[in-house]
Design a protein around this nucleic acid. Structure first.
Lengths: 376, 376
DNA sequence: CATCGCTATGAAGTCGTTTTGCTTCTTCCA
DNA sequence: TGGAAGAAGCAAAACGACTTCATAGCGATG
């Protein structure tokens, strides 16, 4: 995670100009309408064609003419009207992003990565959360017609049929963590590999009775993790147990309580995400169960809180920003017809912390925990 | 915080179709070009004008004609081209969102709130992070010309002059947590009130030697909090001390170490944000200083991790999603000329937890901690 | 000097939609 | 049955930028 300016909340109560008037174009004596290419042409005494050529640099324009045009444009502070431009060019220079109703880090990280990449390639991001309602996705996608040149869609919970029906023809699409649909390129977190690594880690540190708290059925990630866990345990010749969860903190706590209540021997819990793992941790603490001495706990995602709970949480980290960036890179490549880009999901990393017996790292400015894998 | 579907990472390694070919319009035998209004008119044997009227429902169209048009439109699955539409209507039905390079909750929450509101009013969100470089803001704003009908800008670190210079004329603007500029409406977190409340809370629980760890100078939030703290302490007739921080975890830890080293009496630390408070907490723990018995610690923001550290962190919560929603509501109101909307920042809440002597709440499904203010 | 060829420029058409006059078709009433 | 009022529908003109085609300028060449 690169260093960033953390956002802090704003200044004092300052509802300046909360009267209705001064908002909008009625703002003082400013120039009201924006200058058009025609205005620039008139100001520079040339035709609109020359202005267009001079400013977009496509064809030859005499030096003196170009200078005159540029000065006129600057004077009027002319900026091409994007709508007209996209109509004329049949390119919007924007890509549509359709995301589920995400919370926290996942959302901001994926959008950050997408924005970084899109911006570097001169594209804009048009956002649309598909709130709980999946049918809403279709609408969201529809309203983007003519506004975007491509679509990046993440829909881990949607049924493939529904999504397939609402995908536009004639528009490049990249799917992220979504069931496969037609021949659209897909970028998915490597759940299988990640889950295998974590299961191996638990086994390697001596755990044998490992329970997986799964996410909701139908969610592509939850399903992949559940299956990956079962496969890894089978490969190790160990009996596997799975409890259904819901990806929420309380679901994890509930699962932990059930686990303790039914009395079966358990020496490790691997939750399908960090929120459930944290719920687990708190439930164990309330019950006086020592983590990691009696039971190890592992999560998935490496949400920020994972570092701060006690014991700190062992988990799998995925570079979500990079995932978003790669999806956009691929999309832009398809739109502009550029050379194919490296198209592969970033590899997850195992982050060993106290909850599975790792040592808590001293919090340092660098926070370079990635290499940590030291047993106490 | 409403219940949501938490996002989980994606399926297994599934880079289907990672060959270059099948992406984009060359996708199989699908209809290549999108249907235009002209196609619909031809299919329904009417003029384009009638199609436009029928579909937008503006003027009288005979029932039979309308039905024929609607069927034709459905058959061709026609969706109006947004670019052309915005050119003709001189309205883009989109608002531009310019944000600093935020991390985590803040970003996702504010965008979530904005998206909710924008979507409800038929608007799209065009996103642009202004990465570290503030000059980049000007560019970002410029490239949105003709693409959006209004701008929501958050720039807590920028100098007013710079921002003022890059604001477009002829476009409504709402500022969020940003220095005042001209007569543009501003929505800011009520730092002053929030800081006063927290300072009072510390004083009320018996603390007298309170130190504030401030954020970086020039940041509008950091400055407001620092001043608010000083004012509140002065009002209480107590000596106040401020240490400079940077809004980062390590800055908080560093400040805490300095505090312990110089040996002055301190019984409470109020950090300008949660990250620094958490850094503090860890530094105190390393040094064997008991929190809250010897020193109370308070933060600001209520980031998710605040609930999970031990001791859990007392902090101020601000409804960021609501802040975003209100900004957009105001903006849309200005664009459409609708009646003025309620335009006021949401009020911050004091969340008392263990780090200032509150009792840790049992983690419950409801997590209704807002009312909690019970001393042990 | 006429011609060729090249560059720089302009006029006009295009993109897809909305909207404004204007024409045509109904329908109703005297 | 004639006329008028009103509803429906059409052709054409925006909207702003890009682009093709045609043309003017102009030096070089035969």
């Amino acid at each position: 995670m690169e260093p960033v300016t953390p956002f802090m909340f704003g200044a004092d109560v300052k509802n300046v100009a909360s009267d209705w008037g001064p908002i909008g174009p009625s703002l003082g004596s400013c120039a009201l309408a924006n200058a058009t290419i025609r205005d620039v042409a008139r100001a520079a005494s040339v035709s609109v064609a020359s202005v267009s050529r001079a400013l977009s640099g496509h064809a030859a324009v005499r030096l003196a003419t170009r200078a005159r045009i540029e000065e006129a444009a600057r004077g009027l502070d002319y900026v091409p009207h994007a709508g007209a431009r996209s109509l004329s060019l049949a390119k919007a220079h924007a890509i549509g992003v359709v995301l589920p109703d995400l919370h926290g880090e996942f959302f901001s990280e994926i959008v950050r990565g997408m924005d970084r990449e899109a911006h570097a390639r001169g594209f804009h991001l048009l956002l649309s959360n598909m709130h709980a309602d999946p049918a809403h996705a279709a609408v969201a996608i529809g309203t983007m017609r003519g506004r975007v040149d491509g679509l990046a869609i993440m829909a881990p919970d949607i049924s493939p049929e529904l999504l397939a029906a609402s995908l536009p023809r004639a528009l490049p699409v990249v799917l992220i963590n979504t069931p496969a649909i037609g021949a659209h390129p897909i970028l998915c977190v490597e759940n299988r590999a990640a889950v295998t690594a974590m299961t191996r880690h638990l086994i390697d540190t001596g755990r044998r009775a490992i329970v997986h708290i799964a996410g909701p059925r139908g969610n592509i990630d939850a399903d992949a993790r559940r299956e990956g866990f079962l496969a890894a345990m089978a490969a190790a010749g160990l009996p596997a147990r799975v409890i259904d969860g819901d990806f929420h903190e309380e679901g994890g706590a509930e699962a932990a309580r059930r686990l303790l209540a039914d009395g079966e021997a358990v020496d490790a819990v691997f939750a399908a995400n960090d929120m459930m793992a944290i719920g687990c941790l708190f439930a164990f603490r309330s019950a006086g169960v020592d983590v990691p001495d009696r039971i190890a706990v592992a999560g998935f995602d490496d949400i920020p809180a994972a570092r701060y709970v006690s014991p700190s949480l062992t988990t799998m980290r995925v570079d979500i920003a990079e995932l978003g960036a790669r999806a956009v890179a691929r999309l832009v490549g398809a739109i502009t017809g550029d050379a194919p880009v490296h198209f592969e999901a970033p590899h997850p990393e195992l982050i060993v912390r106290e909850s599975t017996g790792g040592r808590r790292k001293i919090i340092s400015a660098n926070q370079n925990e990635r290499v940590c894998y030291d047993q106490p």
